[in-house]
Structure formats: C-alpha cells, structure tokens
Amino acid sequence: MLSVDAYHRPRSLEQALALLAPERAVVAGGTDLLVNPRYMAGVREVVDLGSLPLAFLEVRAGQVRIGANVTMAAVARSPLVRGLADAILSRGAAVCGSPNIRNMATLVGNVAAALPSADTPPPLLALDAWVLLRGPAGARRVALQDFFLGPARADRRPDELIECVEVPVPPPGTAGGFYKVGRTADDIATVNAACVLRVEEGRIVAARVVVGAVAPVPLRVADAEAALLGRAPDEAAVVEAGRLAVAAAQPISDQRASAEHRRHLAGVCATRALRQAAGLAPHGAELAHA
C-alpha cells in the first residue's frame, strides 16, 4: 500500500503534464516506486502514465525510440533493439529482475530511477543514448551521460516526464558486449558493464566502456575508451582497459559487496564485456531470459 491521497491516470500527454508537480510522483510500471521508499519521499499523489500513448518502439530518423510505456520484456524481445551492437541493450533488459518484473517494469523507469546498479543504463550509455524530456515549456533532449546526477538523482524537473529514450542506430559493424555479476542468478547487479567497439582495418576507431554499481552514477570510463582508440582489439588492449576501469571505480561497501570487491569486479566485468565486443569471447546467454 502506497500512502497517497490520489491516483491519477491521465489519458493524454497534455493532461499528464498539467498534473505534474513536486508532490506528485510519476508511476510507470511501479516496480521501483512501490518497493523503494526513496522514490516516495514527500509524495502525496501518483500519476500513472499507463494510459498515455507512449508504448512505441520504433526507428525514426536514425534513432530507435523507446517510449515511456515500453516494458523490459518488450525491449528484450524487440528485433529492432537486438540489432543494436550485438544486442547489448536487449541483454541488459533481459536480466532486469524476473519475467513478472520485466512484464511490468519499463526501460524508461529504469533510466528515470537513476540507480547506479541498474542494468540498462550501461548499454544505453555505451550506445550514446538520449533522454527526451517533456514539460510545460516543451521538450528538451539530454544526453544520457549528463542525465544521471547521483543515486536516484537525475536532471529532471518535477514538472517534466521522460517521453522516451532515443538510441542512435550505430554504424554497421559496431560490436558490443555486456556482462553482469550478481550474488545469485536472479539478482540486482553487484557490478555490470557494457561496451561498444568499432574496428576499422584492425584498429579500434570508437570505444565506449561503461561500468555500473561502482560509482554514484553508471560510470563511463573515459580513460579506458581513450586507451583503446587506435589499438588492435586484442587481449592486451582489453585487459589494459579493465585495469583503467578499476582505477576509475569509486565504489561503496554495502550489504551486497565490499568496495574492494566491486572495484575488482569493475575490471573483470569491463574486460569480459570488451572481450565479447572484440570477438575474443562468446556473448552471454542473457537473451535466453527474454
């Protein structure tokens, strides 16, 4: 039971925007909102986005657009999303909780919740995704890497909602990797990582390396990305990048793992994700859960 005074279910974007206010929380799937009290601080009413026409998952102008009502299950199964960089986003979505959770949880909610351990932000960051916010003054686009400000804090004003997440379709031949470590098979990430590599004529020409749950926000490891550029995609390169991920990590200790262990795993996960992208190791079996 959420302790709220009202439940709103607007039928149009305009109605929804008119309702948004600091003491009103947006609810999409509700799998974070109903479970994690931090999202309910100061909240007196909820605005359910469920009836808004935001269930689109489409390509438009070179972007895959994922609307606020698209569930993790739909993302994980979407052929469009699977086509992006070795399906890294599909794989991240496929391991977000259990099937019942993925049937309810939205990808946009996963982004909006802004938790450093979330499973889709690393692939989204590796794919240079954008967030499309809409408020009373109109729409604005924020690069995902600028969106996260801290645990459960993001660049979103209380009168804005996220309409969709936009993922630029990468050039053909872009490879990706994803790796998640949890305490058990069905667990929130102790650490996760995603990466994207583009190799031309035997040299890495573009690299993104992102590690989750090792910093207040999902962490892009700029040093690792820089170090990879111009190198051959070989074992030495990915191991070096992993080392730089360890150096960049600023994890905390909590009931799931010690900071020391997380720092170590930052390197392991980054390296393993990169190995997949570099063709040095097979991809994981996450899609079996989609």
Binding site: L2, G30, S98, I101, N103
Partner: peptide, 28 residues
Amino acid sequence: GTGDCCACGVILDGRSVNACCTLAGKAD
C-alpha cells in the same frame, strides 16, 4: 512484498505480473 518471490503472481490483461508491486488502479 518487494517483487522478489512471485508468490503474488497473477495474469493482468494477458501478462503475468507481481500483484504486490502493481497498483490496483492499473487493473481498472
């Protein structure tokens, strides 16, 4: 009560979900 065990699983409009972390308003 936290969506972690699926003992509250129901099928809502064709999709299996955990009723413990689904607002009843969604069933309207």
